[in-house]
Amino acid sequence: MPTLPINLGSYLVNLCSALLLLTCFAIVAQRRLMACVDLFALQSVFLAVTATLVAYLTGIHHIYLAAVLTIAIKAVILPRILKKIVRQLNVQREVSMYVNIPTGLLICGGLVILAFFITQPIVHLGFLLTQDSLAIALAIVLIGFFIMVSRLKAVTQVIGFLVIENGLFLAATAAAYGMPLIVELGIFFDVLVAGLIVGIYTHQIQEAFGSVDTSRLKALKE
């Protein structure tokens, strides 16, 4: 059982959740694709640390497994795949975006407020240790959406998707002390396969269109 006082534990979990949120802002502010991938890997490390903390403080062992899988899949394997794609495609920077960086950061600030507003009526139900994490998790999910819609390059859209996944995982771990093990394993498997499929698609789009700029994908419409 935990040797840390519950208050200190709660502070640490909140600190880690806040660091996750901070990396989201860093991704929004970053144009270089390689750096975005690195920031995503860093975020996954923070996520694993949060999960380890929760596992240690609550004594629920299967969360340790989830933390290990997070490191393996989200901090090592997927970033490697993404970097390989970035190198093959020979695109290093995102030159044009739908929203410029300062406006984007302001919108993300608004999304965080929105997330706290939405979750306000339900956080009191949660476990004392991790009450504020649900709001932070929702904020990360929303910022992930924002990254997906505001960027043009296929690779950054994928990073947006993975950020959403990280937010969801934080919600499951921190707010609900982890989903049942079998569900969690299934989710990891799906995320990994999704990453691979997106990799296949980016490759094929590059071959067919000569670019991974998704704004060129607009032949199909009414």
């Binding site: 997906m148 859209q157 998707f161 999704a194 997106v198 698609y201 094929q204 269109f209 032949a219 199909l220």
Partner: peptide, 14 residues
Amino acid sequence: RSKGALEAGWKFVI
């Protein structure tokens, strides 16, 4: 794997 199919597939995935 035509251009149309890739575009539709990408939209669907995202």
